[in-house]
Design a protein around this nucleic acid. Structure first.
Lengths: 253, 253
DNA sequence: TTAATTATGGTGATTTTTACCATAATTGTC
DNA sequence: GACAATTATGGTAAAAATCACCATAATTAA
């Protein structure tokens, strides 16, 4: 497709100010919380092809004809990991000139814009898809947020953005319950929050009383014993009882 | 540019799954707060050319070669309104297939992606640029958020998103001080918050004590009299004293 | 001079947060 | 089977923050 000249209003720019053509990709910051080992994980893939072959990067894909951005984000995830329960939302778009080495240096080839997404997947459910390694990836792996390798493109920046969003989101919305098992103990929930938000984000006892007072955690009546100590009650999340708390902070750091 | 076939991994999709080509535009939700008349305003332009000619829409522009997204957003603003003090940030990207009538129905032409931005400009400073009406706009006007006309494209949805972000942002960050005059009264500030967040968001007296206790509003020593009543102290915002409050709520609704 | 108006700086009741502590119910050990 | 260790649970009291007011100060308008 030939470049079209801009509608000729700005005389001084007329010869050079042309509309850029874009390829649009999605990049997905996929988080998973391992409460047993107290690790906050991000899914990375080892790139197989240039640019940045043999560098770790976020799973991503270019958007296809007829495909929505969110569909593409879901596809980028489902090609790498199998999981039922997940939360996904758009993060930010990165599209400055020169962010992708595939762009021609004369600035007349296609630009590459990345619409980034952030996902949270159930750690107990999540399974790598073996076939996923064929789709442009040599390897798939979970990395702890504190121990990331060097990354391709501007993916480090995207991750920083996603990490901030995850911490913020956790305080304001019930995304934890999207990926926790149906029935969980209050300690499970506490470990989840602590793993994401960092140690001493709140006293355990106060965390319990605050959450229970809100009234959207229902005691299922069942108990579970895990090693020594008094058995813990299993709770479940009541989405209807949560409604009044939408857009309100649940926990203060 | 010819369509490139996808790298041939997925046999069943191979014949149809092709990468989409995009034009990328920015659309800008430009807010302005008129504290005298207690109005929250959005800048709209009356479109001159198809698609949606003679419909009101957000100011926007297609991204040019060598231009960053944020530069394009700034340009879309500065073509319509002259203003020194403003706040601008990226909002959300809308890019589903079929969101722009210029897309070919067979889904093999260019797609149109809109990276939306949200701006807050000083109401006292802001002046329409006469020449701006030539750049694809028949008219430029401020509309109250509660009284918007029918809009082009999915701009109504973009505005809803922007309005939510504005209200949220105002509670968590000092964007009001970007567009208030250097020196302002506490009542100015209160009117600003009330105009954006709605009536009875807080008691005036409690608003005053809370903000003053935080310590980043400095009394300049000057007073100003506006009609009847005791003269009010003029304050200024101290950005350094504000640092500790970053990412903390200032006002609860 | 007096009333109306706006700004300012309180007060005390109520609620929330915070830092703890005591007890209950289990497992593991001697 | 007694006892220690461990984890869960449900408190308490002090401190802090929120909330609904109110009294007074300093100006303009009549």
């Amino acid at each position: 497709m030939p470049k079209r000249p801009l509608e000729n209003n700005v005389v001084s720019l007329n010869h050079s100010a042309q509309l850029a053509d874009f390829k649009v990709g999605v990049d997905n910051v996929i988080f998973s919380v391992d409460i047993e080992q107290h690790r906050l994980l991000i899914l990375l893939i080892l790139r197989q092809e240039p640019p940045f072959s043999d560098r770790w990067s976020l799973p991503g894909t270019l958007v296809r004809n007829g495909e929505s951005l969110e569909d593409a984000a879901h596809r980028s995830l489902s090609e790498k990991v199998q999981v039922q329960n997940l939360y996904l939302e758009q993060l930010y778009s990165f599209g400055g000139p020169g962010r992708d080495p595939r762009e021609a240096p004369d600035s007349f080839g296609d630009r590459y814009l990345s619409v980034s997404y952030f996902s949270l997947v159930s750690h107990t459910e999540a399974r790598f898809i073996a076939e996923g390694a064929k789709k442009g990836a040599k390897k798939i792996a979970w990395y702890e947020v504190g121990q990331l390798p060097e990354l391709a493109f501007d993916h480090r920046e995207i991750i920083n953005y996603g990490h901030r969003r995850l911490k913020n989101k956790l305080e304001y919305s019930p995304i934890a319950f999207e990926v926790l098992p149906q029935r969980f103990t209050l300690n499970d929930l506490y470990q989840f929050y602590e793993t994401v938000l960092g140690q001493n984000f709140s006293d355990y006892s106060n965390f319990r009383t605050r959450l229970l007072k809100l009234g959207f955690l229902l005691d299922t009546g069942h108990k579970v014993s895990r090693g020594a100590g008094r058995p813990a009650s299993l709770y479940r999340f009541d989405a209807i009882a949560f409604e009044p708390f939408k857009n309100r902070p649940l926990v203060f750091v």
